[in-house]
Every structure is written in C-alpha cells, then in structure tokens.
C-alpha cells in the first residue's frame, strides 16, 4: 500500500488529480483552503493506492508527493523550482511544464549552471518559480537574449520559456533566426492557442473558429490566416536541430513530454544542436472551459491540427528541401 500527501494550501482545486487517479481515490473537500480554493482530499482507502504518481504528475502546483508501499518517497517536489506558489489559474498546465523542465535540469545535474529566460505573457513571472539564475526578457526577444548569453558563456545551460504570443507572433523573427543559426540553447514553447495574460485575445496558434476576445465570432482563417505550426515550420530549416511537440494535458502525455524535454537538454549539454520542444497546454480561464474540459479540448481539437512527435533530430540525415522528415 502506497500513500500520497496533498498540500492543501498549494492546491487550487483544479481537480486534475481527481481525473488522473485510476482508482478514484481523490475527491474535492467540502472546505476552502486559506487561499479560497476548494482543495482536494485523499478520500479512498489507503490500501487501494498503487503509488502510480499520476496525481502528482498532473498537478500544476507541486501540491502532491507520493510514497510507495515500502514508505520510500517516489515523487518528490523538484529542487529546480522555488517554493513560491504560482500565479497561474487553476488547471493551467504552465505549472506542469515548469515542473517537468525543472525536474529534467535537476536529474541531469544542470541546475547550478542553468540560466533560464522568462518571456512576456502568462509566464512572465517564471523567474520567481525556477530556482536558478534567470533573466526576464522583453516580449518576443528571449531567443536573442539566449543567443547573447549562450555565445558569451557557452558553458551555461541556457533555455527560453515562451508562450505562443511571445514566440510565434512578436518574436517570430527571433526564434526563426536563432533556430537557423543553430544556437545551442533550448526552447520550451508553450502553445495554448490564446493570449492568456492580456485576457484571451487571438494568438497565431488560435484554432480555426475558436472564439477569443479579438475573434469574437471565431477565428476567420480567410482574414487571419491558419494557425501557425511553429515546430513544422522550424523543421524545414536545413540547420541540424531537435524539434519536437508534446502535450501536458494528461499524465501519460506529460511523462512522454518529459522525455522530449530531457532529450532537448541532453543535446544542449552535449553541445549538439539547437533544441526546441513545443508543448500543447491549456488555458481553462480564457477558453471558458473547466480544467477537465480543457484537457479534453487539447486532445479533441488541438492534437489533430498540432500532431505530437519529433519533427527533426540531429541524427537524422539532412532534411530534403521539400519538407520535414516525419510523417503523421
């Protein structure tokens, strides 16, 4: 029999752990925590918990830790994040992507020489959460800042953490050319198909017909173009790179995503190439959906248009000028 420990103060009551638990052992409490959220409780029988850790994997708020049947802790909150509670909305998967990135840096032993670069957007405060040296960059310019930092001190492990407005819109030029130059830093690109911080405007990655405050009738592809597939776009470049897309919408995909992030940082550690991981992420608040519905929307609406996979890797032969080396 395993056990989990829920930090009810950190819990924002998004309920993702409730959905993730294969044994239905977690439920909403009847109480509010001190921050005003209906937190979750472990309500099942202790002997039913298998210690699968999926609840902790999907928690965006570092709110759950897990011990196995030998009472050995099998899920520990990473030292790569500070103890600050994030400002992200309940159910937003930024917190998951932060944690996966930090876990990888910790597991690879890179925390002491890592420099992260926060963007402008919802993750503008990422420098409060990553427990490493951090820059805060101007909107869209993180790849330029990373170029300067990595070129100046190649021994550092440099990564940018950018959203879709930051990277795909205002910073389109910077990411394109950093990738084309083969800058040896890592990009974590969080695509949630909307501008979050400014209150739900249309992003370059917004889905066709998706309603936002600046596309109130739904995105019209005739006048606003089609959603930008940044990974596919960058994969057409001849410059060697690791380019992949994962998703953080459930536990299984989050674990797969972590492997991609790990590979990305390994390539940087080994000075191999530019590495880029796009993450399909959720924005329950601006999508107007519950966290559960948001996770489902990623799978039903985003994933068919934004297929998961590896689009380019340095080991692969040079990509033909006509297209990427993947199929989907």
């Amino acid at each position: 029999m395993s056990r989990i420990q829920i930090d009810s103060i950190r819990c924002k009551g998004c309920g993702r752990c409730i959905t993730a638990c294969p044994k239905d052992l977690i439920a909403f409490s009847q109480e509010l925590n001190d921050r005003g959220y209906t937190y979750v409780d472990f309500t099942g029988h202790q002997e039913d918990c298998s210690g699968c850790t999926l609840c902790a994997v999907v928690c965006p708020d570092q709110g759950i830790e897990v011990w196995n049947f030998k009472d050995k802790q099998t899920f520990v909150n990473t030292a790569g994040l500070t103890e600050n509670m994030t400002h992200y909305c309940p159910g937003c998967t930024h917190g998951v992507v932060h944690r996966l990135t930090a876990e990888v840096l910790e597991e690879l032993g890179l925390l002491d020489r890592a420099v992260g670069i926060a963007p402008v957007g919802c993750s503008v405060l990422a420098y409060e959460y990553f427990n490493i040296d951090m820059f805060e960059a101007a909107h869209g310019r993180a790849p330029a800042v990373a170029t300067g930092a990595k070129r100046a001190r190649p021994e550092l492990i440099v990564f940018t953490y950018q959203g879709d407005g930051d990277l795909a819109s205002i910073g389109g030029n910077e990411i394109l050319h950093a990738a084309n130059r083969g800058e040896k830093f890592t990009v974590i690109f969080v695509n949630n198909a909307i501008y979050g911080m400014t209150g739900g405007q249309m992003a370059p990655t917004t889905m066709p017909q998706q309603k936002t405050t600046t596309s109130p009738l739904g995105r019209d592809v005739e006048t606003t173009g089609h959603p930008l597939r940044v990974s596919e776009l960058l994969a057409t470049l001849r410059t060697p790179a690791f380019i992949a897309r994962g998703s953080a919408h459930d536990g299984k995909h989050s674990l797969q995503l972590k492997k991609l992030i790990r590979r990305a940082f390994e390539y940087q550690r080994d000075n191999t190439c530019f590495s880029f991981v796009e993450v399909l992420s959720t924005c329950p608040t601006n999508w107007g959906l519950s966290p559960d519905e948001s996770d489902a929307w990623v799978e039903s609406t985003m994933m068919p248009y934004y297929p998961l996979g590896i689009f380019k890797q340095p080991e692969a032969p040079a990509v033909a000028a006509t297209g990427a080396s993947h199929d989907h």
Binding site: A138, R141, A144, V145, T147, G148, R181
Partner: peptide
C-alpha cells in the same frame, strides 16, 4: 570572442542584453 550578425537591430540589442547579463563585455 565572437561576432553575431543579428536578424535585426531589435535582436542585436537583446543579444547584448543576454551577453551583458552573463557578465561579458559586449
């Protein structure tokens, strides 16, 4: 040292921001 031809002046000044931020004269 190294020279980087930036994609724009916008990028160039932010590269300076990155390199100066890691303590390198640029």
């Amino acid at each position: 040292g190294a020279f980087v031809q930036a994609e724009s002046e916008v990028a160039a000044i932010h590269m300076v921001y990155g390199a100066a931020g890691v303590g390198i004269k640029c």
